[in-house]
């Protein structure tokens, strides 16, 4: 009896929570509606409904900057009504996409956690007349299923970094390679760049381990190499956090790093603090991964709204690689995220 009562209570509280949740949602939707006529009259058109599926903004500084950029751009002042869904898991993202399709958004903006498994939901979207725009990450699906894809060319990021490393003309290359979450586009592209160059130049990759974007795992991996007594002179970490973890292990073992030191440290993403490490010559290289995609997306949507054709489906953003010897304070302020 007691148990039944308890479960009934629990159910009741869950329903209550859901109602509160929905209540809030309604409020959010309602409030703008109250002002909407005025706003709409001024602009003379309705708000464009966009459903944005992104990775968890806490994943990294890059993602935080990306989410912030999108949130700041897709506002009612700019003529958008945006809903956001976050997950690092592909299946949860697909479920969110299905929900957005059911809700009848005008545009579905998608940064996929994984490249596979998107066909059916995108077909549903197409059937419902929803335009899909991919940002930041590509997927393995037919080009017909989306209107445009705004991406960083991860392969090129890896290639740029590897070419930079080659230009350093080190006597020998013994590389610790710390990878991101296996299977993500960033990991694949950045790994490919290094692997290709290492094969061509005969570089020695001592270890190739995934730290899953986690600084502490990277620290343990490098610590293990130090304990083992292996000689290495390059750390190629696929994001800044992991490079930071690697450097923490180096510091503990009194291995110098940075410009003109024992170990060359390379990171990606251009976090502000990472660029400052470059400025202080503690690191050597940081590859940019441009998180500011909202304006690119907006441009596409404007074109589609005006009935224009998108000539080139894949739009590649401009990205740089920074060298510690050339970086300036201006670069840190402009490109740091």
């Amino acid at each position: 009896m007691k148990r039944k009562l308890l479960s009934a209570l629990l159910c009741a509280s869950m329903v209550a929570v859901m109602l509160v949740g929905c209540g809030n949602g309604d409020k959010k939707a309602d409030e703008p509606k109250a002002d909407e006529p005025a706003a709409a009259e001024e602009k003379g058109d309705e708000l464009i409904k966009v459903g944005i599926i992104n990775n968890d903004p806490n994943e990294s500084g890059y993602r935080t900057a990306n989410d912030k950029d999108l949130k700041e751009f897709f506002t009612e002042e700019n003529g958008y009504e945006a809903s956001f869904a976050y997950s690092l898991k592909n299946d949860e993202q697909i479920a969110a996409a299905q929900k957005f399709v059911t809700d009848g958004v005008d545009y579905l903006l998608l940064s996929a956690a994984d490249t596979a498994g998107w066909d059916s939901v995108l077909q549903d979207a197409q059937a419902a007349g929803i335009q899909v725009i991919l940002f930041d990450r590509t997927i393995d699906a037919s080009e017909d299923l989306y209107a445009a894809s705004i991406v960083s060319d991860m392969d090129k990021e890896g290639e740029t970094a590897a070419t930079w490393l080659k230009d350093q003309a080190l006597g020998e290359y013994n590389i610790i390679h710390i990878q991101g979450v296996m299977g993500s586009a960033a990991q694949q592209g950045r790994t490919k760049g290094l692997n290709d160059m290492a094969d061509a130049e005969g570089w020695n990759i001592i270890t190739q381990q995934t730290a899953e974007w986690n600084a502490e795992k990277a620290q343990q991996i490098v610590q293990s190499e130090i304990d083992k007594g292996t000689k290495f002179n390059v750390i190629y970490a696929e994001n800044d956090d992991m490079a930071k973890g690697a450097v923490a292990a180096l510091d503990k073992a009194n291995i110098t790093h940075g410009v003109g030191k024992e170990v060359v440290v390379m990171g990606f993403d251009c976090n502000k603090w990472a660029l400052e490490e470059l400025l202080n010559k503690n690191w050597n290289y940081d590859g940019q991964c441009n998180p500011f995609q909202a304006s690119y997306i907006d441009e596409i949507i404007k074109k589609l709204e005006n009935g224009e054709e998108i000539a080139e489906k894949t739009i590649i953003m401009e990205e740089k690689g920074f060298d510690a010897e050339e970086i300036t304070q201006d670069d840190v302020d402009t490109y740091g995220i």
């Binding site: 994943e59 600084a215 502490e216 620290q219 923490a248």
Partner: peptide, 16 residues
């Protein structure tokens, strides 16, 4: 200890 190791935090991966 975890935040002290790196003097920073990453909410989604710390102590995962």
């Amino acid at each position: 200890i975890k935040v002290s190791r790196l003097s920073t935090i990453n909410y989604s991966v710390i102590a995962k």
